[in-house]
Amino acid sequence: MKKTLLIASAISVALLAGCSSKQVVSYGDATAVETTDINFGSTDLQKVASEMTDSLISSPVIGSLTQNKRPVVFVERIKNKTSEHIDTESITDSISTKVLRSGKFRFVDMSRVEAVKKQLQFQQEGGLVDPTKAIQFGKQIGAEYMLYGNLSSIVKANADKKDVYYKFTMRLMDLESGIIEWADETEIRKTREKAGLGW
């Protein structure tokens, strides 16, 4: 009896010790499909950004708009209407970077206006910068188009399943006429089914 007990406890200890293992750090592919959980993740961000940019650049209307010039665009913001805290600025960053890379548009960045103002003020009034070489106020070019959008979601769940549907809508508005020159949407559906048996 005593021997069996000893063996049994030895096995338990050995098994428990097996449970704890060393941590592993490794590099992965930044564009690999990520399915850690059902929440909005990097794959969704990449999918949304690349689909929107492709659609914008390949649109025939945009082709005619950008034939002889590179219009100036400002990105308003993506409104987060989902039930997750999503950094929508990161989505707009991805999109504007891709669009800028295509060479069809030029951008003005509204999120850095304060910093620019501060710098210009320093150049003008700081006394350190040569006044003849200081950047003048009132020389910037105003945006002609505004890019904006919405990200919304519908979440449903029961005891076995959770389903999340994301819809991402983007529009490009001509600021002078108020006409929407381009709009598109992309959808993502993710489903999580619970494991049957677990700890």
């Binding site: 959980d37 059902i38 769940a157 005891a159 076995d160 959770k162 999580r192 619970k194 494991a195 049957g196 048996l197 677990g198 700890w199």
Partner: peptide
């Protein structure tokens, strides 16, 4: 709570 909700239907624990 989310972790709890994502766990298996039948749980040994």
């Amino acid at each position: 709570l989310e972790n709890e909700r994502a766990k298996a239907k039948v749980r040994l624990g």
